[in-house]
Design a protein around this nucleic acid. Sequence first.
DNA 1: GATAGTATTAATATA
DNA 2: TAATACTATC
Length: 734
Amino acid sequence: MFFQDSNPDLFRNLNTQQRQAVECNPQTSALILAGAGSGKTRVLTTRIAWLLQHAHAGVHNIMAVTFTNKAAKEMQTRLSAMLPHNLRAMWLGTFHGICHRLLRLHYRDANLPQTFQILDSSDQTAIIKRLLKQMDIDEKVLAPRVLQGFINAQKEAGLRSGSLDAPDPYTQRLIRCYAEYEQLCQREGVVDFAELLLRSYELLNANATLLAHYHSRFTHILVDEFQDTNNLQYAWLKLLAGGGAAVFAVGDDDQSIYRFRGANVGNMAQFLRDFGVSEPIKLEQNYRSVGNILTAANAVIQNNSDRLGKNLRTDAPDGDKIRVFSAFNDLVEAEFIVSEIKMLQREGHDLNQIALLYRSNAQSRVLEQALFQAAVPYKIYGGLRFYERQEVKHALAYLRLAINPDDDNALLRVINFPPRGIGTRTIENIQAAAQTSGTTLFQAACTMGKKTAPFIDLIEQLRGQVGVVSLPELVQSVLDLSGLITHYQNQKQIAEQERVENLHELLNAATYFRVEDVQLDTLPENLADHAALPIIAFLSNAALESGENQAGKGDSAVQMMTVHAAKGLEFDVVFLSGMEEGRFPSELSLNEAGGLAEERRLMYVAITRARQRLYVSMAQQRMLHGVSQFGVPSRFVDELPENVLQHLSPKPKSKNSQENSHLKFHQHAPAVSNQELPRDFDGFLIGENVRHGKFGVGVIIDAVDGGSSAKLTINFGVDGIKVLDTAFAKLAKL
DNA sequence: GATAGTATTAATATA
DNA sequence: TAATACTATC
């Protein structure tokens, strides 16, 4: 049956399960349970290649959906390398990108203006704050983020304000706010992220002809990271596939770590029922990590119940043991990590292949400082992204106003920035005028006389250039005429000068922006004659692509990021820092049902990032929000099997010393050096965990030998540090 | 209306 | 600690 692959190499090196997945029935849906490092992307792309080469589908019959632009690009690149086909006709993109495309194509049916704009989360927050003020609701009574969460949750449940009802006045008010918000967005022609999905769902659901068209077109839909889908995305897929399309869903329930933003792992089990799939295909062969690391990962995740069930295996040797280090405080932990990194560097490791992971961004600072002082290059992921910077958003707001002056959000952002004498008072007047006359802020501002005249003139001037000058020329006009550049240039602080450079960078981006490049994902043909086309495309691109890809990745540097950000990546060496109860698992997670299980999956993700070597470290004392706090080792560290661990404890501190900097660590060559065994105090070791009847679990941070017994200094976390004598205290080792 | 100084509060993050 | 929101003052 498969005797004539036009490119047999594509399929040859697959293992049995991978091949089973790639070649499963093209007419029916399938769920692929793909463990970490099991060749998930390869299976996904090879499946597409297989469908095409065996003529089960044409390029235009295929839709492939991902969550991130990065994943979409990766797939695009791999497919182009594999296949001779022109992939233009294939719809490959993120959920949001594809929905955006649908809405641009059918903006009339979707009841949107042709020039509709996309709101990012901070735009959304701004609108909500404005709305609350307008409705005269105190932010202390109803926090903007609460309302924002409510609105997004409703949209993700597919619910409009009109279909909602509640008995309690609190929820009733939320619903009223939601209704106002809907009207406001509609009036201003703006669409938030959740709206992209909901609106395109409703578009297809309400329009039988349109739905039938897409049903016959997309016979094969492939979905990456299926465990991350939210309920709306699932419903959207179900609707789109309702004409009998075969859905090829790839995911890993053990790597579901985005419940907090609406992801529903239950969608995997639901998928089996809804799409008539009897059995998922499991990819359990791991090609990434050495045996000990995999053993640890399997052991940790086994503490979770309600799994679909999967156990990773590898042919790789056991490799290094997992190095566990308990530091006196966060500074010492950082010092330890730096010294290990330097050692690895000397051994010839590429810094790009070393990852430094932490649970929350706040933990990066100490680590960064230590690396900086030691002159070890590092790169931190997850800061402010290019298109999220205030100066860039200011400039883009002017650009938005140039194509649509009725965009109130954009107007409020820049009507007095740079400062031009339009203060809160005037703005309130404009808002009142707009409210009474039922117009937009811009229209109201036009009637306000000489106070607002220069601003109105400025916007009119920019409007006049739309379609007349090129995109970069328009951006240049924005920067010059608005006074943004001048304003930042006049600032004294160095940080402000960086903003000037970012604005120049924006101009650069506009100069090199090619509408054709985003065509694949965004640009429908019906806009081609629109004068504002390049601007709309540029703005949409800025909203959907946060600009992460602009980050320079040239030089070799330690890769620092949160565990969340590390998902999907792999490194030779991984440092997992801050492994204390309350940090990881986060104490906030412990209050939510299922929170601990999600944290454990996060731990699983963290462990499986490492190919060869994994370090797990913790600090008994840590500076948090400006105050020092005590911590005990994370329960996840206890869940690591002892036989794959190697404990690296600091030598006992010299008596009268408060300084930590002279603390030495075991200098370990690649093999374990047993020359310096940790000292024994009546059977206890420094760094060891013990349990006390009253104080609970603690860690031994110091000890004094007293012959037949020993005095141990033990850190019991919230219960503080105690000095206990082994002759009296009942201490159990863990 | 602009700005400097004080109070408040805190996770994870994609589009 | 650090970012942001609010208040007091020029």
